[in-house]
């Protein structure tokens, strides 16, 4: 393969962009899914409606980042797309089924004519959110564990994902998303519901810290290269401050929750944890897109494809982010059961 010029740089640019898109997806859809997981934990039906109201106008856009992820992978790293999806066939499809159930539940739950059916779609909303979150973690965990590839094609078993590390990652991601959901509701709701969510945020923060520690200790044990990646110069410069930052964020989080000083701080602390974990992951696997064998260059589409899409992305992604921000701005402010603002 030609490793000079565009064929070398474009995959790097796209890998950074793809990582950014995945992180945006986590930021936007994480709290959205987490809110769904918390749904059945809230027995009060009025509060459940308030919870849904905080995301109803924006959830379609959040989910679109997931579609973008699929499309970009298909166009920019087709070999990775064609390897990861067959390898993770069942978890991907289970995730999609779950996302379908929770997606339609948004519209269906309020339009059912009997309480029984409404309750049933509430279960669909919660269950779908939970399963989708767990599967995203499982997919990530399987990818990090390594996928068996020969001649640019998947040759492993269809059940490689049914292993301790991927399942642990599934639990970790679901736990993290739930924390994002709880802190989002601390930000966007009031009074009793907000107090309940503060309690949840505290419990989930502890769980999240345990999960982060678990994944961090487990990952370098999976492959020698991961360990090397963490301790090599200059990467160690990025790795070393991570535990300190995690603890610093924990201090801020618990202080904010206890003193109730700010609505937003807990949400951004939770996002901070995600950012640190996500960067740690990136540092571990770089420059592989399908560990242990396929690098971003192996997986790449020809430069003519990557360049064509990059031109559009450079112009359109900032535009997308700005009108998404506008939509959030229109629906800003806290929501409560008497909220008159949406009439």
């Amino acid at each position: 393969m030609d490793m000079t010029g565009a064929a070398y740089w474009l995959p790097i640019v796209w890998a950074v962009l793809a990582a950014m898109a995945i992180f945006i997806y986590i930021v936007l859809d994480g709290f959205d899914l987490g809110l769904g997981i918390l749904f059945l934990a809230e027995p009060n039906k009025t509060y459940r409606n308030v919870m849904v109201q905080t995301i109803a106008p924006v959830w379609d856009g959040n989910e679109t980042w997931m579609i973008f992820g699929g499309a970009a992978l298909y166009g920019v790293f087709p070999n990775a797309y064609a390897t990861i999806l067959p390898a993770l066939y069942l978890p991907v499809l289970i995730m999609l089924f779950a996302l379908i159930m929770r997606g339609v539940a948004f519209e269906f739950r309020s339009r059912m004519h009997t309480q029984r059916m409404r309750d049933l779609w509430d279960v669909g909303f919660c269950g779908g959110s939970l399963v989708a979150s767990v599967m995203q973690g499982v997919i990530l965990g399987t990818l990090v564990s390594g996928i068996h590839v020969e001649n640019n094609a998947f040759v492993g078993s269809g059940f490689d994902w049914l292993a301790p590390f991927p399942l642990f990652c599934g639990l970790a991601v679901a736990c993290g998303y739930t924390l994002l959901g709880a802190t989002w509701l601390v930000w966007r709701t009031e009074n009793t519901l907000q107090d309940t969510m503060r309690k949840w945020s505290g419990i989930l923060s502890i769980a999240m810290l345990v999960m982060i520690a678990g994944v961090s200790l487990w990952t370098p044990a999976l492959h020698a290269t991961y360990m090397q990646n963490w301790t090599d110069w200059p990467r160690i410069l990025f790795v070393a401050p991570v535990p300190v930052a995690v603890i610093a964020l924990a201090v801020v989080m618990f202080m904010a929750l206890r003193r109730k000083v700010s609505r937003r701080i807990p949400f951004f602390c939770a996002l901070g944890w995600f950012f640190l974990s996500f960067s740690g992951l990136g540092i571990s696997i770089w420059p592989y897109i399908v560990p242990p064998g396929m690098t971003i260059w192996d997986a790449s589409a020809p430069p003519s494809s990557q360049a064509f899409l990059l031109v559009g992305a450079a112009v359109l992604i900032p535009l997308i982010l700005s009108y998404t921000a506008f939509a959030y701005h229109v629906f800003r402010g806290t929501v409560n059961e008497h909220s008159e603002s949406y009439h």
Partner: peptide, 20 residues
Amino acid sequence: GPLLGYEVMTAFFLEAGFLG
């Protein structure tokens, strides 16, 4: 793939962004 990528960037985000 790039055609699908353009579809998402020029259409899906636009629809979802203004649907709310």
